[in-house]
Design a protein around this nucleic acid. Sequence first.
DNA 1: CTGAAAGCGCTTACAG
DNA 2: CTGAAAGCGCTTACAG
Lengths: 343, 343
Amino acid sequence: MVKVKEIAAAVGVSPSVVSAVLNGSRHVRMSEATRAQVLAKIEELGYTANFAARSLRTSRSGVLAVVAPKLSNPVFAPMFDGIHDAAEESGYVIMLAEATRLVDGSRMLERILGHGQVDGTILRPSSGIDSAGVRSVFRGQAPIVVLDEVPDLAQPWLAIDDVAAGRVATEHLLERGHTRIGYLGGWFHAHATFQPLEGFRHNNLRRLDGYQAALSAAGIEPRTDYVIETDYTAHAGREAVKQLTALRDRPTAIVVNNATTSIGLVGGAIAAGLRVPDDLAVIAIHDIDMLSEVSPAISAVRMPMYELGYTGTKLAAKAIDGETFESYVIKDPPPHILHRETT
Amino acid sequence: MVKVKEIAAAVGVSPSVVSAVLNGSRHVRMSEATRAQVLAKIEELGYTANFAARSLRTSRSGVLAVVAPKLSNPVFAPMFDGIHDAAEESGYVIMLAEATRLVDGSRMLERILGHGQVDGTILRPSSGIDSAGVRSVFRGQAPIVVLDEVPDLAQPWLAIDDVAAGRVATEHLLERGHTRIGYLGGWFHAHATFQPLEGFRHNNLRRLDGYQAALSAAGIEPRTDYVIETDYTAHAGREAVKQLTALRDRPTAIVVNNATTSIGLVGGAIAAGLRVPDDLAVIAIHDIDMLSEVSPAISAVRMPMYELGYTGTKLAAKAIDGETFESYVIKDPPPHILHRETT
DNA sequence: CTGAAAGCGCTTACAG
DNA sequence: CTGAAAGCGCTTACAG
């Protein structure tokens, strides 16, 4: 393995100069010719930096830990894209972990908690995530940026506008003449696998706020039996159809706060002989590719998940550099209705 | 930050002893009482190892790079679970990268290529992945395990039994009386975004082999116009319906070599007024949760993706330790038919 | 058997 | 302005 010292010897300069070339440091001055020679030698000998040595010296690892509830949830795909793009731009590499895997003694948790292995952590909390492992994350040394609204937490956060999402989805149904509008959503209450972080009003509840606000604004009294609590699976959507059809004056339209669940709901409704949207209109919060490919294609509210990931990561990079910033809700772009076949 | 030296001083032993306790090294002997004291002090002072220093010394980073075509593809979810479980067991932490992000100069690629940052790489090749970036991966210093069949490549590999998958899916349709059976699959040919690695016969082609073998065994002449080339999206499945219905003596059943595409295909068929399975039967290769939740629920062949990830990672850990192993196709568990509503 | 000392490969404060 | 030297925090070969 070729090292700085060898490059230096080959060119006939000191290691300091090579290091300066490598890091673009202005501290050490050198002629343009020397710089070019060093660069050529680096190329020629195929030098690659030893990050362990560099980390030890600089106490920066260049690693960002990203903790999310479920990596395979398609809703997060654009968020991860945003995280990756911003990380690359800022010179970081990403270590991904699922919250449920952050059990006591896990290697990943060890790295997050340890010193110098991870420069910062980006945490997307959610149902099932607020485990002992996630709580431990807050004991870590490095800055944390939370990608959801957690006003009471000491850590800075960034969030999408969940209240607006719930409101806009409900307004879309109101505009189509519906008055009996239900709401299907993941975990509103504490739960075996969902112990909310302090100060964390779950995004499901914020979307529910928006839903209720839209109904109230339209002069409609929200009915508690129209609000059905589920988990986040497609299966839960399918199962919910039974509860819905059993209802007196059942809703003619549903806001579903999860894209995956909306697929199960529509599937279950069709299997139960309901026509969609004639017997039951459905709109999902969050858009995923598949919603436009199933039949009928499912209407959805697109949320700025890419921006959430991108901006959150940029803010994390700032936090690592010691800058502070105000937590805020992303208002731009606003939630956007994708009107398809289920409404 | 507390360090080994401080623990040693606090207990009154040398750093060597603390290090030995930390690493369970038998080299340095000590009394059980000393060991207990050291452990207690580590706990008390909240010592966490500095991985950069450890890496520099041992030239092991404890990091495994995982490169896959698309992290959000639900087909890979169980594979990643297997990788995570095995990594945790073997003491590694995972760095995930999408192949398309491994462009020249990317940080992740730099780490893979560099020395000592990544102990090994697990590469799942596929369409669109065999970019210049992926080729560069093979220039890396650390061992690579490829999670697909690449007989001509120097690197060891591990694969699921794609030929059997194609065969079993086709037999399932034959058993239901179909004789006009089509095949819908991603990229069979080289392509702007798919430049196959040397010696890499794409898994799509291997599945196609199984499909053709099953037809031949049943005395049916495979028709080339029944084989439709698509990409991996749900959208491609939806579009393929047009090609299918335009066909003379169109197929009455289709093997789709991708779960996501099968959702689009069924959606498109229904939108085109075809009854599924009466007018068109569909079976997908690879099972994902959603296939059982859409309506009609889509039949599928379940492949041992968890095992692929788990065993592949264990083999990577072995390779890092200098052991060699024979590449092989996972025969157990065999492909398993999940008979649902589309067949 | 145990502790002191060397050294992994960098970067940067410091002396010349 | 430039190079030599120190030191980041570990682990382990070595001397005692």
